[in-house]
Design a protein around this nucleic acid. Structure first.
Lengths: 250, 250
DNA sequence: CTATCATTATGTAATTATTACACAATGGAA
DNA sequence: TTCCATTGTGTAATAATTACATAATGATAG
């Protein structure tokens, strides 16, 4: 491309894109993975939280901003997993029609690129907040997600795939559980993410052998069966192991 | 964000970004990983191939376009690995100074986002072509890369990390070698990517046990030592194994 | 108070995968 | 013909993964 062409392009802004970000915010409750979705004003249409990235911020900062706005949480496990720039990413006319009461159809760019992040949060600590274009923000069971706006079903699908790989590389379980948790809870989390049953004896051995868990004296009370022990993630041990290099998970 | 704000934003184009793409094109020659770099006109400055993504194309299509332009190749293993949107990504003033003879400093946007792809190609099949802003396109040994423009050293670093993970999930070796190759060549490729020595007997066992390699009757000739067998990647067997689900690599 | 229910906690043996390790064979060059 | 560099290959030891079953316990219901 020649200097003049570049200048012309800049003039026409042809090479600029609408750059947005979408967050797949995941929590874990009652043995199921949950994802936080927003319902748009005056419709029954749902989508992922997200929005434009401002010129003044890095894309990571934008992701943290959106997370903070929707969940109230600051320190969150957040990871970019894919950038979506198909052409077209979704049926533009359909979206224009569905959301015309909210957004002038003119505003939709032909090609919108969105950067996908997933976040892992402690379900109990989140207070879901809708944004300016939406009226409802709530958790959905990952297995009961409706048809979403844009290509958001697809984005969630890829986020879950990325998570299945990540679970082998990091103790991500600990981001999704409260500070104290039981072994069966942790196992159920792994089973949900990996989408397969695990043997409790082998799971216990494996997890314990990582040496990054502390068993407390306490047990969970109020369950109508043998009370399970509570465990805590031992962050210091984890950091130490990481430095030594040797840490792989399931 | 309210409708009016969105309209205002659109007017000012504040939420639009310069969206570019950079390709880490990797080849393998003489036992070393090579990366294709471009030297800019009238300077000694090098960078990765890349450029703006056009409004009319998907980001994957843009990556294939750039690859085709720089290498002449069509069918290429190409993978998006990360999107870079730090703020700032690099020292803008420095870049403006270095490239002012080519590009009006005005043209540089404050925040540029680039999508990183890596490509794996057969070194021998590539005929490197510079683009409009560059005069030289050539392979560099991965271990001898100079200080590059922008944040391109960083981008290469992350591409190599992504490749180290990918090598466990796919037989990517075959994209980097010619159709026929020897076992020691394949081993050296793995050693280079993983950056560690492998035992030849264990490597042989492991690779053969995947069952996706065919040993030919032929041997490589003209070497002043025992002539090694040639192997071919058995694509049919690979596809079959993939379907059955069970395929993991090193 | 006791029996029942649901669930937790845990060990061992078999299988499979990984690692460690050494030397004879061979093609070309000297 | 000898020498050199490199290829081709097997076995034993160790480590990791899988398969598998039962006693303990806390709450609840009778």
């Amino acid at each position: 491309m020649h200097k003049n062409e570049l200048m012309e392009q800049r003039e026409s802004k042809d090479y600029l894109s609408q750059l947005t970000l979408d967050c797949v915010i995941l929590g874990f409750n009652e043995g199921e993975l949950k994802v936080l979705l927003l319902r748009w004003k005056e419709t029954q249409e749902w989508s992922l939280p997200g929005g434009p990235i401002l010129q003044s911020e890095s894309i990571d900062a934008a992701a943290y901003r959106i997370l903070k706005e929707r969940t109230g949480l600051n320190d969150i496990f957040l990871k970019q997993f894919h950038t979506f720039g198909e052409q077209p990413r979704y049926n533009l006319a359909e979206i224009q029609e569905k959301l015309k009461h909210l957004i002038d159809p003119e505003i939709w760019y032909k090609r919108a690129v969105t950067i996908g992040y997933y976040a892992l949060v402690d379900y109990a600590k989140v207070s879901p907040q809708p944004d300016e274009l939406t009226v409802e923000c709530k958790w959905w069971d990952i297995k009961e997600i409706p048809q979403l706006l844009f290509d958001h079903n697809h984005i969630i699908q890829l986020a879950l795939q990325a998570l299945q790989i990540e679970i082998n590389l990091q103790p991500i379980g600990y981001n999704l559980l409260p500070e104290k948790f039981t072994m069966p809870e942790l196992q159920r989390l792994y089973e949900t993410i990996l989408d397969r049953k695990l043997d409790p004896r082998n799971f216990y051995k494996k997890i314990i052998s990582l040496g990054i868990l502390t068993r407390l004296k306490e047990r969970r009370k109020g369950v109508s069966h043998k009370a399970p022990y509570l465990y805590k993630f031992d962050k210091a041990a984890y950091e130490a192991k990481l430095k030594e290099g040797g840490l792989s998970f399931l």
